[in-house]
Nucleic acid binder design. Structure first.
Ligand SMILES: [Mn+2]
Ligand SMILES: [Mn+2]
Ligand SMILES: [Mn+2]
Ligand SMILES: [Mn+2]
Lengths: 220, 220
DNA sequence: TTTTTTTTTTAGATAACTCTAATTTTATTT
DNA sequence: AAATAAAATTAGAGTTATCTAAAAAAAAAA
């Protein structure tokens, strides 16, 4: 069963939205996620339903099937492996990789992805800290907490970002926050939820709640 | 001016056929080259004419324009760089790369191809000995002669193959002919054009005229 | 429980690419 | 030069993916 590039993009979006815990994935959500119109989404949902990668009853909602999950995870695996390649080997910065990976993820060749994985030394996480599924779709995810939900004096290590937009990533670069950084919460402002943290035991950083909520920490 | 994947494939085929020296490129030739029907070719020629990458007058013939050449060479450059990547870094064999490169050549990102070129150390030839155009489309080609046209006692180095089909390449692997091999013509059979050569001063090899005509040699 | 709003789907078009079958043009024979 | 064959193009249809506008269904508000 092979999917077209468009189908892969839709299915990936559906998978991501499904994982976000929301009760159900709406047509409008999907349209927003892949920058298309709800009418186009309705049409594609029908097709994805026929291919049995989702279970779809119109007006009612949809549910991704096991088959759908497996296929989505394969695309996600490819996307993230390519991101690692671009950063580790071609020296892209982590805010430059997304667009290109969005294209590369659709290249069809199991041999290619096997070899790429080996070449990169079987990485477990992509440049944004997201876990790379193995060839069977198994994901080894780490327990993570949003930085704004940590308490004062708690410490940990930045392991991922929720928002992978270029703007956000460049902001993090600028202030010196990066994946792997060891941090400690120095202060939290009740009023607006902003936090003050200590990075690598030497630099203090203020950040808004909005920023902090997009940084994921492995607590220690 | 950007081309679709299909347009890039057509234009590349047209460029290759134009380079083969034949007086003009026929609709049927193109159809055969990219495994499609003449009717589809006619339609695409009209579109490529409108985009001014070829000059096209129906029933008369076509000529690739300077713009068309430049764009075709860009695609060829990408194709061959990816082939080098697959062989040098991912350890594909030279008969496994074509299909995948056929997909990868359409990835759109100038940064990607610049970085890939640098990463591969600015290779000048692909795994089949074909020259890699630089970013301006300049090709540094070597003077080459088909092995079956060499005379007895002449020597040289295999630098390329004309036929890049998996079957032919695997045959060359089997008999021990490879790009870079130093050869010398020991004997030629008038009757059927077959040749006997000495490879790397140790191994003698018989090959039919058909095989020899697909091996290109830099004479020494 | 109506009414209104929002969400979702359908209808109808368009664009890109492909095909088969029919037609037109050009080339080759007789 | 006329007949025939070959090559190329057009006509018409199908697929995939997208859109706008209209209709239908569900959810929210009055
Ligand atoms: Mn994509
Ligand atoms: Mn990522
Ligand atoms: Mn191609
Ligand atoms: Mn090649």
């Amino acid at each position: 069963m092979e999917l077209t590039t468009a189908e892969e993009n839709y299915l990936k979006a559906i998978y991501h939205l499904s994982e976000e815990g929301k009760k159900s994935v709406s047509t409008n959500d999907i349209a927003a996620a892949i920058q298309t119109k709800p009418a186009s989404v309705s049409d594609m949902l029908r097709k994805l339903g026929e291919k049995e990668v989702i279970q779809y009853r119109k007006y009612y909602g949809l549910q991704i099937t096991e088959l759908g999950k497996r296929l989505a995870l394969q695309t996600i695996r490819k996307h993230r492996l390519w991101e690692v390649f671009l950063v580790d080997k071609l020296h892209f910065s982590w805010d430059e990789v997304h667009e290109v990976a969005e294209q590369l993820e659709h290249i069809q060749s199991t041999l290619l992805i096997e070899r790429l994985d080996a070449y990169l030394n079987y990485p477990k996480f992509d440049p944004h800290g997201d876990p790379i599924p193995d060839e069977y779709g198994d994901v080894r995810s780490r327990p993570r907490i949003a930085l704004n939900e940590m308490n004062i004096d708690q410490g940990g290590q930045i392991v991922a970002v929720k928002d992978s937009s270029a703007a956000f990533l460049r902001y993090l670069d600028k202030v010196g926050a990066y994946i792997g950084a060891r941090i400690k919460v120095l202060d939290k402002v009740e009023f607006d939820g902003s936090v003050e943290i200590l990075v690598d035991q030497k630099k203090t950083l203020f950040m808004s709640k909005d920023v902090a909520s997009n940084i994921l920490v492995l607590q220690s």
